[in-house]
């Protein structure tokens, strides 16, 4: 019997296995017609709508078109939806179907599971980003008004937004507990938030109190940060307050990320240790009775 030598610490090893697990699951996602189809359908529908609006000027902004103004909000919403609904569904489903328990029965499996699930969800937003951004320049013109450095900053905003929102999805999944609760308790609030936060542009049409409220959430600031990165000089007049606040945007997103990083692991541990074989067995019995 050969015993493979592992030089990494057991914890590092478990994290590495989690990354491998996440990449494997992402591969499964890419090979599942429904998952790919969902991204393509939504992405193409958005592109078609925006293509019909490609010459619609934005009032008050010199030469800016509606699609150009909309892109940052769409990217922010993609991150928001992907990073809340994805982990929430994955966690609620995989606690129930025994995936979590299966991993928990292996050494450091909870770490591997958590890293793997999060990795798969983060990678899972790439298809939607690709469906939107790859054809964009050909259909709607170059959306970036700040050169190559702007693209680097854009990736930075997307990563920061991911860190801010991912814990929200974990917390939602842990609190929902069952996949059936995810839509009413996690998806619905995000949809409402997306509407009021202004996907296609800044939410300046809202009453003042509501403008204040959306600024407590990461979605507004992620979209704001992205607009400050892609839009040309002068577009800031469209924002609430008529100015760019990239520093404030980073600060708000960072607060969400830090608080999330403190809260989410606690809930994640609670939910992964709650699942027991007895509960699984009870579900199997129920399943067999249904099947019979």
């Amino acid at each position: 019997m050969t015993t493979p030598t592992v030089t990494a610490s057991p914890r590092t090893w478990a994290v590495r296995l989690g990354l491998r697990r996440g990449v494997t699951e992402f591969g499964h996602m890419l090979r599942t017609a429904e998952e790919v189809g969902w991204n393509v359908v939504i992405g193409v529908a958005l592109l078609v709508y925006l293509w019909t609006q490609k010459d619609t000027p934005v009032p008050g902004a010199d030469g800016l078109t509606l699609p150009e103004l909309a892109l940052p909000g769409i990217l922010a919403a993609t991150i928001m939806f992907g990073m809340t609904m994805g982990p929430a569904f994955a966690l609620a489903t995989e606690v129930e179907d025994g995936t979590v328990l299966r991993l928990r029965a292996t050494p450091r499996g909870t770490t591997t599971y958590s890293v793997g699930m999060l990795t798969a969800q983060v990678l899972g937003t790439l298809p939607m980003l690709a469906v939107l951004l790859v054809p964009w320049p050909f259909l709607l013109g170059d959306p970036m008004h700040q050169g190559a450095g702007g693209w680097v900053a854009l990736v930075g905003w997307l990563l920061l937004g991911t860190l801010a929102v991912l814990p929200v999805g974990v917390v939602a999944g842990a609190l929902c507990g069952r996949p059936g609760r995810v839509v009413p308790f996690a998806v619905a609030p995000v949809v409402v938030l997306a509407f009021v936060s202004g996907v296609f542009g800044p939410p300046t049409g809202l009453p003042g109190w509501a403008q204040g409220a959306v600024q407590a959430f990461p979605l507004y600031w992620l979209a704001h940060g992205l607009r400050s990165t892609t839009l040309p000089a002068g577009a800031e007049v469209l924002e609430i307050g008529g100015a760019w606040h990239p520093g404030l945007a980073v600060a708000v997103l960072a607060v969400w990320a830090v608080v999330g990083a403190l809260v989410a692991p606690v809930l994640l541990r609670r939910v992964t240790s709650r699942q027991t074989a007895g509960a699984m067995a009870a579900r199997l019995q129920a399943h067999l009775q249904r099947a019979a």
Partner: peptide
């Protein structure tokens, strides 16, 4: 475990390889 739903999309070998690796340290 008595489970019948987890890892449905995984291939048999893929899952066993992944789980076996957990024991290496």
């Amino acid at each position: 475990l008595q489970s019948w739903r987890d890892h449905k999309r995984w291939r048999v070998r893929e899952l066993l390889d992944q789980l076996a690796a957990a024991y290496a340290p």
